[in-house]
Design a protein around this nucleic acid. Structure first.
Lengths: 243, 243
DNA sequence: GTCAACTACTTCTATATAGAAGTAGTTGAC
DNA sequence: GTCAACTACTTCTATATAGAAGTAGTTGAC
């Protein structure tokens, strides 16, 4: 859908072509997060378009969450506000339902594996990297995660030192691989803890757990990651905003 | 936030004032779902605004989901596509995870009651109507619901014949009371079936259930409805789209 | 040094205008 | 009667222009 490299479709209206051109320049890393883009006047001169058309193109990117405007100051490349937006990707509340906080993560293992059939189909390849993690809140394990990403798309991930992996993976995807997670689908159900998860969670094998299966997508619609997380059913909280 | 009656703020830019004026006319029922609004030219003449400004106002309402444009044909009041959008408000999948379908509903009881404290706070009144329902899929009960709405805002709801209540309540809110549910927040957790729910669901009292607490909001941000639904944990599926 | 005024920007609102693109019903040749 | 052409609309794209509103750094009076 959204061209990431060249390939601007000349049949598209001018404002969409400019949007694509700008999106490509952003993807290429020409500007860092927080940098200002050229002003509307400059862009309009550079691309031989009226300011109105330029504004329409940038507005698109604002709507898509890539840019940010500040009247009088400029139009800026948005730093993906992971600390804020990622709450929406990690929607477990703390036990008492109070304000959510980002849980700590500890890596259990990383390995290049052949994807399970269903995962391979979603990611479009069966050469995948599997990451196992435990997430804890106040030193208490709350989620055991199994994460799969394409080994090609994330080449070199396995050699990133654990110390460089923060509590959140999506900023790593963005900073190290330029891959932005734009949306995700969570599927929830209840189940029973398999042995491995039970151990990580400190519960008994077969105890009731919440199971969250998530597929995360890039802005262009391709699946970036598939994961399944399990947590003690007794302490599980999940919030979903619907609109 | 969004004025529903008069009270157009003259300090707002013209396009927002027009948006508010149109929103008020829509809320007043001047046009039915599917009706065409006056054309951009007519609106621009009527309101002494340029077509560009008119387009900006209507575009807002398109973005808010109230209008729909069809090039060459007109701009239309959107019929709230409850059959489609309401999936997003009822996100349980069928047992096998296949395509969701709208479950049947049967009314258990309706009564004017004093709201439980937490509910009263959310709805802003403790004079509420309580509706109890059971939702079934293929004649099998899957959810027991307790629903609360403001008795004032929904005056007369208790006398709507049951036959006029379809499987979905939000269209009733819209058609009979002009109240559009624009977004909602679901809070999920696990629990155990209280006696009343267990009976409705055909499970044993104390059996594990999924508990979904929902607060539904009108476009102006006020809470319209609060409900809690319980379903057999074994058969529970929930899908959440995050962006 | 303080800080108000100024300057040179920026984005934002609004207008008027021209023509492209699309729709839906009517006209009229056959 | 069929159906292509036409007509009178509609929304949509794009331009040029003017000035308002807001920002951020500099200048200069005190």
């Amino acid at each position: 859908m959204a061209p990431t490299r060249s390939s601007i479709d000349a049949r598209l209206p001018a404002y969409l072509q400019l949007r694509d051109r700008l999106a490509a320049r952003i993807a290429s890393g020409e500007w860092g997060p927080g940098d200002a883009l050229p002003s509307e006047n400059v862009l309009s001169r550079e691309h031989q378009l009226s300011v109105g058309t330029v504004r329409r193109a940038t507005q698109q990117l604002v709507d898509e969450g890539l840019l940010e405007r500040r009247q009088g100051a400029g139009t800026f490349l948005r730093k993906p506000a992971f600390d804020a937006t990622l709450f929406r990707f990690f929607q477990m509340l703390s036990e008492d339902g109070s304000a959510p906080s980002i849980p700590q993560s500890s890596l259990v293992s990383r390995a290049l594996v052949t994807a399970p059939a269903a995962v391979g189909e979603v990611l479009g390849t069966d050469r995948v990297l599997r990451i196992d993690r435990v997430r804890s809140l106040a030193d208490r394990p709350i989620l055991a995660e199994e994460i799969y990403v394409s080994a090609d798309r994330f080449a070199g991930f396995e050699s990133i030192p654990e110390s460089a992996l923060g509590p959140l993976l999506y900023p790593v995807y963005f900073d190290r691989f330029g891959i932005l997670v734009a949306r995700a689908v969570d599927d929830l159900r209840f189940g029973h803890a398999p042995e491995a998860s039970a151990q990580l969670l400190g519960i008994a094998s077969g105890d009731p757990v919440a199971v969250i299966e998530r597929t995360a997508f890039a802005p262009d619609g391709t699946a970036v990651e598939w994961r399944v997380a399990r947590g003690d059913a007794k302490r599980f909280r999940y919030r979903s905003h619907i609109s």
